[in-house]
């Protein structure tokens, strides 16, 4: 049987680091209607923060004018209790997604990055998909069960 969408939301904001806390709070607020556990809310905040930070740090690195750097988040809540979160940028894109997702892999060598963002996203969710095109942008789709089963 098809899983029906029962609620959804979309936001768009500029790729400024001060918006990292805004983004994770917005998704956590939206998810709260499904009455998830405190641990699930904490995981959601972490993974949203990871993806949004990646768009800001990697996707739009080197772009001075942040008004040209949109980040889009779409959430869809399904009848089954699944939350699907799509986080998208129009930045530089990822050359080799498989390599980028390896633990400890980072292209940012002077920014004190640990290369663990994708590993955290993978282990804190029930599913992750990454789509990217060089020069076009990157979309990360994360899935998390909100029900207390």
């Amino acid at each position: 049987m098809a899983d029906r969408v029962i609620n959804g939301m979309k936001i768009e904001f500029m790729a400024k680091s001060v918006n990292e806390s805004f983004a994770r709070a917005a998704v956590a607020c939206f998810a709260a209607q499904a009455d998830p556990s405190v641990a699930v809310i904490a995981d959601l905040k972490t993974v949203v923060s990871e993806a949004v930070t990646n768009s800001i740090v990697h996707g739009y690195s080197g772009v001075e004018d942040k008004s040209l750097c949109p980040i889009y988040i779409q959430c869809r809540l399904f009848e089954s209790g699944r939350l699907v979160i799509r986080i998208k940028d129009r930045g530089r894109g990822i050359e080799d997604i498989e390599t980028a997702m390896q633990p400890l892999f980072t292209t940012d060598l002077d920014g004190e990055r640990s290369g663990m963002g994708f590993t955290v996203m993978k282990s804190f969710t029930d599913g992750i998909k990454v789509h990217s095109r060089l020069g076009k942008g990157t979309t990360v789709t994360l899935e998390k069960r909100l029900d207390r089963k």
Binding site: T46, R113, G117, V120
Partner: peptide, 13 residues
């Protein structure tokens, strides 16, 4: 109260 992989980078650094 909150820590993502940037916190890891901070500790490793």
């Amino acid at each position: 109260s909150f820590c993502d992989s940037s916190g890891l980078g901070l500790v490793m650094g």
